[in-house]
């Protein structure tokens, strides 16, 4: 299992664990973390699992690659910035043990 902490917009922290190789989206949905909708089923098609990766973690997670499908969707998301990623596109590998993700106030 790999641990990940979701920080809500009101500051609430929730540490959850997920099997290695599952995505951060599954980590949130399987553990009822509020604020991650994931409408499309985890196939990078809706941008309702938008998270801001904690700046300390962004290089290990990897930044958005301009021009790919994830970046195309996130350009329309509210509050997107240089730390934005879609949780469905973050596989939870052991190198991400202890990852911190910030959940925006609302998904769009």
């Amino acid at each position: 299992m790999v641990k990940v902490t979701f920080v809500s917009s009101d500051g609430t922290r929730r540490e959850v664990a997920v099997a290695e190789g599952e995505t951060a989206r599954e980590a949130a949905l399987f553990n009822n973390v509020p604020g991650i909708d994931g409408d499309c089923g985890g196939v990078c098609a809706c941008a309702t699992c938008h998270v801001h990766v904690d700046p300390a973690w962004i290089d290990r997670v990897g930044r958005l690659e301009q021009g790919n499908a994830e970046a195309e969707l996130l350009q329309f998301a509210e509050g997107a910035n240089e730390y934005s990623r879609l949780a469905c596109q973050i596989p939870m590998l052991t190198k991400l043990e202890g990852l911190i993700l910030h959940v925006p106030e609302q998904q769009y």
């Binding site: 909708d37 409408d39 499309c40 089923g41 098609a45 809706c46 941008a47 309702t48 195309e72 969707l73 329309f76 609302q106 769009y108």
Partner: peptide, 18 residues
């Protein structure tokens, strides 16, 4: 319940869904 197609998906997904 939100796993449905009524709003479409991808870059043309309904902007007014919320």
């Amino acid at each position: 319940p939100r796993h449905h197609l009524s709003f479409g998906f991808g870059i043309h997904r309904c902007m007014g869904n919320r």
